[in-house]
Nucleic acid binder design. Sequence first.
RNA 1: GGUGUCGUAGCUCAGUUGGUAGAGCAACGGACUGAAAAUCCGUGUGUCACUGGUUCAAUUCCAGUCGACACCA
Length: 303
Amino acid sequence: MKLSAKHLIVIAGPTAVGKTDIAINLAQHFNTEIISADSRQFYREMSIGTAKPDHNQLSKINHHFIGQLSISDYYNVSMFENEVLSLLKSLFIKYDAVFLVGGSGLYIDAVCKGIDDFPDPAPELRSYLKDILTHEGIGKLQEMLQHLDPEYFVTVDINNPNRLLRALEVCHTTGQKFSEQRLNSQKNRDFNIIKIGLNLTRPELFSRIGLRVDQMIVSGLIKEVESLMSYRQLNALNTVGYKEIFEFLDAKITLQQAVENIKTNTRRYAKRQLTWFKRTDEYKWFEPSGINEITNYLTMTCK
RNA sequence: GGUGUCGUAGCUCAGUUGGUAGAGCAACGGACUGAAAAUCCGUGUGUCACUGGUUCAAUUCCAGUCGACACCA
């Protein structure tokens, strides 16, 4: 453990487990602020479908990185890392502990461990490579990568277009192999990091997901999605809760089917989140009802 | 009440001319360093309704029971 008196307390866990409420309680108890690490709550146009904290919740504790972007803004993990680090610098002047709360594992890891620096690829390059994918298929991308970076080619998720596009993008932009630049280096942070994971039994979690999706419909999800219809091609809207309602609005499926699909896709998302967080033993796991245990644990650990 | 059809995985269904069974979806497991609520990979989880009979062997053939549906009364 570092000698620094500053602590970043991470609260992670699957969607719908109850992170928002717990984090607010804890932030009140420790008298501090919350940084959100939720890659879809960044967007101000998406509220109901992302289960953003409501006005009442936001008024209790200062939240950062909620609704600071528009869905048409370009954004990525590296930008998040830099912005959070610079925000932390100023928050740690006022507070000894700050909470980082969310379900986006990659974003949390970028803040905690850092991410290798790559130059930003030109937007034209990205669309050029995407065109190749669309018109010539993934085989062509595989061929290109095998030629440009044979080392990465043998370890890459060969059928995953996103991985191939990214590697090619970096190779082309830098003129060097992706594998030579992706060092997976761990950056040192001048604050201590404490990681808390929240989880429930599967039946409890799945039941909460079902209830929350039903509640979203009641709260006006359809209207929210309808208002975004003309932006549907944007990446931010390639999101559970939005893509299914688009299909309903296209009259491709019934509302009932759309709701079922949202529940199913949310369950799968929750499972992927758990896979991410469980692959390290850095998290100390609690049930969301165990607020007292968490408070005690944090009080002890922060000393 | 009678006749007929059906009963196989969580769901929808296929199949076995008798050698204990397989698809889709769901589910489960995993990967993942600039799209990450994205993207990708892997895995059948089963008293073949029940009870008997025939047979070396029955999920398959036969009988009965139960259940579902349809038609006739």
